[in-house]
């Protein structure tokens, strides 16, 4: 099992647009990935509604968990996404 902790970078948190980019990346990987906010419940990271419902804001600490052969590589990619300001462009 692979696990990563990351701080949310985007100014407006994980709202619709960054959430779409994030969940699509998870869906494309084909791996089961769970995401949770510190102390909160874990949701399916490929679910845009699940991710939006966490109400993630800038500065929140997030935990990603996955299993599988390429789990480390996929989680590294997701960590890069979350630590980039996706609203910047």
């Amino acid at each position: 099992m692979a696990e990563r902790t990351v701080e949310m970078a985007s100014k407006h948190g994980l709202h619709a647009r960054p959430a779409t980019i994030f969940t699509q990346t998870v869906a494309k990987s084909g791996l089961p990935v769970q995401i949770s906010k510190a102390g909160g419940k874990a949701v399916n990271a490929a679910s845009i509604l699940g991710v939006i419902s966490l109400g993630i804001e800038q500065g929140d600490t997030l935990t990603l968990v996955s299993e599988g052969d390429s789990a480390d590589a996929v989680l590294d990619e997701l960590v890069t996404l979350l630590s980039t300001d996706l609203d910047a462009d």
Binding site: T20, V43, A46, S47, I48, L49, G50
Partner: peptide
């Protein structure tokens, strides 16, 4: 994506 959402 909303219509295919696993949580939904």
């Amino acid at each position: 994506f909303m219509a295919e959402d696993p949580t939904l």
